[in-house]
Design a binder for these strands. Structure first.
Lengths: 294, 294
DNA sequence: CGAAACCGTTAAGCTGAACTGATGCTCGAC
DNA sequence: GTCGAGCATCAGTTCAGCTTAACGGTTTCG
């Protein structure tokens, strides 16, 4: 019988591409991963990996096997969820991954609600880079994660993960002067010569800001890299530049800041391992999150 | 993550009812099975087994988990089948279980055909009691098995197994005198006072004969217990009694034996682990069997 | 073009999970 | 009551699988 632990390694390899990365993700040494994958190949009787240069790639048989692994792991996740539901009292730890804005804007009241409805549940929050969310969910280091996607920056679908929508909010352009023009492009274009305040390079928010400006026909002249939207708005208020902020980050804008609603939106979703959607802790947390965003 | 090896033990427990039987089926000691199931329960966090007297029974949570185990094992079987198909050359051992009549009547030409179409395949035949077929298929000791069911003795469906029809043949009443009457009941009733030759108690064929007579309104007076249909017909020919034989066992009846066709039938099917239907060796063997029964 | 960094594999040694065998307990049958 | 069947527990042992260390090949960079 095929070993599911080994299939899990193969699946992770499909996502990451190198044995070293798989090892790091699942906290093994590359040696262990290599040995286990070799054992899987022996057991399978077919080549699953192709050694190309100093890297490895999956053969067609390997890709096909990953699909089966995906299905098996999903079903095991379902089984675990059902067991947790049968348990009744719903205690234990839920590990939550979230991007900074969500941690600040959504999680406090969501966790308060969760503590009221399920006092036995023990939530652990981890502020985690959006790019790291998917691997850490798959690896089981996180149970639930808040992720967002912008127009211009669609999230790529992950076969191992599932998600439900949580929030769909408009983006605002923050300036100190009323913005001009009709439509997003015109509104943004009015700021083409202003200094911009955007998020740290490498983040989704950074990509979003740059792409939005490019779609309007210009490249933003970046002055500051700031991730916290409250700080961003404070900077805008003192004339340090203009910025794009989501509604969630635009509560209580400082005096003097003008917020111009755009048609582009940011969607926040709750992601979890496929099959875990029925887990009572996941259900409870999603309900708490929904109540927190009204 | 739930351990699939342990889930397999739980599934087997669902079929067999006692830990000792599971241990015997999978060639462990009862101690090992007990320890592993205890570990599974610990891992699940819910009671899966209920100690009732000196036996164990599955709790509802246990039953639910077995369903998931069933699905996972099926998918793993599919994966193995696909790997075997990807392998191409189709070599290795196929373990075939068969009841005696089939071994004699079907398998020789089927194996000859298989040797022609797939010389690399190495079939191993095991004459096995029909009651043992399902457990041994599940345990992986057999890959394919020939099973039959009669009217009056329907096979109970097994969630872990799948089967395709192979043969649907009429039953015959073997006598030395032309049988009288219209319909099965009348035909059988004409022999109510004759001595009967039936199969060994405990076999399906035995149950079939007794039930058929009971359905006709009488209990057969059994004189001989003989399993081989050729021998049975020889005994009928010398006046030792009457018997019910399937068409497959009634080829070349001895001089003096009258065969009266009945409307009751025997269906032979090819069984295999659910998910293994796509395994090239299974596909090849089924094709060979079909060619052997014309 | 050489060096360094990176990646994957292999060999050797060690740890812990899991199996066996022995023992004890409980329940049910005779 | 006694015996046997069945499950749990404990101690001992074995082996799969991990880590560490060392090696060979490939890519990149100075």
């Amino acid at each position: 019988m095929l070993d599911v632990r080994r299939l899990r390694l193969l699946r992770e390899l499909a996502y990451r591409g190198t044995i070293a990365a798989v090892a790091e993700a699942l906290t093994f040494t590359p040696s262990a991963v290599s040995q286990q994958l070799a054992a899987l190949e022996r057991e399978a009787g077919v080549a699953l990996l192709e050694r190309t240069g100093r890297r490895v790639a999956l053969t067609p048989a390997g890709v096909a096997l990953v699909r089966h692994a995906e299905a098996v792991l999903e079903r095991l996740e379902q089984a675990a969820a059902e067991l947790a539901a049968a348990k009744g009292d719903l205690s234990g730890t839920v590990r939550i991954g979230a991007f900074p804005t969500a941690t600040r804007a959504i999680l406090p009241s969501a966790l308060a609600a969760l503590a009221r409805t399920h006092p036995g549940l023990d939530p652990m929050v981890d502020e985690v880079d959006p790019a790291e969310v998917a691997p850490r969910l798959r690896a089981g280091e996180l149970d639930v994660a808040l992720v967002h996607e912008y127009d211009f920056v669609p999230a790529e679908p992950d076969l191992a993960l599932d998600a439900v929508p949580l929030l769909d909010e408009p983006m605002y352009l923050a300036t100190i002067r009323p913005g001009g023009g009709e439509g997003d492009a015109a509104t943004l274009l009015a700021c083409r010569d202003a200094p911009w305040i955007v998020s740290t390079p490498g983040t989704l928010c950074h990509v979003m800001a740059v792409r939005a400006c490019q779609a309007a026909g210009f490249s933003p002249r970046v002055r500051h890299h700031i991730d916290d939207f409250a700080t961003v708005l404070a900077m805008v208020a003192v004339g340090q530049g203009v910025a794009l902020v989501p509604e969630l980050g635009a509560a209580d804008p400082p005096e003097g800041v003008t917020l111009t609603a755009l048609s582009m939106r940011r969607r926040t979703r709750v992601a979890f391992r496929r099959g875990a959607g029925g887990h009572p802790a996941v259900v409870a947390l999603i309900a708490a999150l929904r109540s927190a965003v009204r």
